[in-house]
Nucleic acid binder design. Structure first.
Lengths: 257, 257
DNA sequence: CGACTGTTTGAGACGCCTCAACAGATGTGG
DNA sequence: CCACATCTGTTGAGGCGTCTCAAACAGTCG
């Protein structure tokens, strides 16, 4: 029994690093403890819906989209993920992925087996807490997306989407923020429950209104406050207060609350 | 250290019961290991959005709805839950509920503290596995609801909703199934991204077509196969195959795949 | 250079929402 | 017991937001 504990304690050391990694997104300095570290080209699949797999993944660089496909071939984009974020939590029930994940640009992603995650969770309370938090946040994000699609107009959805991108990509608020839309108009539309034409029209409208400039995949935020106003239904001139939380999980979607 | 382990082993016994409970939904026979066991009247809140709490709950009898409220007062029904299902997983990130949960009829619900859950997870691999599976399923359910709202017509949504109810309430397939709609038309509509009038109209239409009968909250399924056909977009006469999974997590929503 | 994909813009159609009126059930007070 | 209010659910008419369809343009690749 004592032998067992000493074994565990060895693994524990590794864990706390992984726990930190999950917490801080400070990924590159924990190479030694990561099993697979792999580069994916633009358009390559990390995994596909139906794949039997017990891995979860953390994005180190790049960006990916995840989506589910229905029997009739319909695709539903579930979300876009950026460095520091986790993939594959949906497979931990049946060891089968229910979504597909594809790189939107050249990306580096590392994976952990389910067994690894479970073992670490059993040993390290901090790591366990982190995993549970990740799950919980994933659920919260889904809730917010649900309300976005169900209750907001097309304009509001696009405005909120842009604001979400801003914080997910860790930009500071400020004037003239440049960001790259790594996903296509079709993907954005699908994610927001719209069609590509509607997204295009609204982006053009926002540009005419002086809120943004768009040129292909290059997007510049000119007037963030105006964008925030557009994202809220009623008062276009009210001040919106950011409820700052420990991590940038959902600042702009938090506008929904 | 040995003392510690013996302490843990004591708790372990309890755990495996709780693990079973989570697995099988065979709830009533594990009274001794459940902390709080509480009765809620129709319309009473189990918890409210914003409540600081670290509890998760399991429904023993009755039915509940969970929803989130936006800043402008908009409500979005997230889901309906029935006996054996879990509530409150969204609070395990920040120890603050992001959704509200209210009983739709007199219900019995028991709660566990986060600490309890975490401790058990650390000790009992089976329990830990169960908790992770629950999280994973919650995410999968959200994905499916997303696709439902984003990609299906109003008729399909209602058809799928009825089929989902059927399996969630553990009815066998068959002719002339009676079930009770414990939620209001407004709640159904909100859940499906519609308005109450649309739901009412579609239910009436389904009745005219001989698929169901509705009288207030009493609903009878006359022709389940026809309902299944309606839930799929294209071919109204194709045979739909149920992919049977271990537990009734999402049979009818699985029609989406 | 042509073929192809992704994006933009316009015109028209349609599905669902909005608004309104009504019916049925339930509860309350006289 | 009835009159009245209230609440949920039903049904109809009209309006609007988004989709559909179509065309043109830009960028990329062979």
């Amino acid at each position: 029994m004592i032998l067992l504990m000493s074994d565990l304690e060895q693994v524990l050391k590794k864990n706390q690093c992984l726990a930190k990694q999950l917490t801080l997104g400070n990924i590159s300095s924990f190479e030694g403890y990561i099993s697979n570290d792999q580069q994916y080209q633009d358009g390559c699949y990390i995994f596909r819906q139906g794949d039997c797999s017990d891995k979860i993944f953390i994005i180190k660089s790049g960006s990916i989209k995840s989506f589910i496909t229905s029997a009739d071939g319909n695709e539903q984009v579930i979300g876009f993920r950026f460095p520091g974020e986790v993939l594959g939590l949906d497979a931990l029930d049946s060891n089968k992925h229910v979504s597909s994940v594809v790189a939107m640009e050249n990306s580096v992603i590392c994976g952990f087996t389910r067994k690894y995650v479970e073992s670490l969770s059993l040993i390290d309370p901090v790591f366990q807490k982190q995993i549970i938090s990740r799950f919980s946040r994933e659920i919260i994000q889904d809730y917010q997306l649900l309300m976005l699609i169900n209750k907001k107009t097309a304009e509001q959805r696009v405005a909120i989407f842009l604001l979400e991108l801003l914080v997910r990509m860790n930009f500071d608020s400020g004037q003239n923020i440049h960001l790259k839309l790594s996903m296509s108009r079709t993907d954005i539309a699908n994610y927001l429950g719209l069609v590509a034409e509607t997204v295009s029209r609204i982006l053009s409208r926002f540009e005419r209104l002086g809120m943004i400039t768009v040129k292909k995949k290059k997007l510049q935020i000119i007037d963030e406050q105006l964008l925030i106003n557009y994202s809220t239904s009623s008062q276009p001139s009210q001040k919106t207060i950011y409820t700052a939380t420990e991590e940038g999980i959902s600042f702009p979607l938090a506008l929904l609350y």
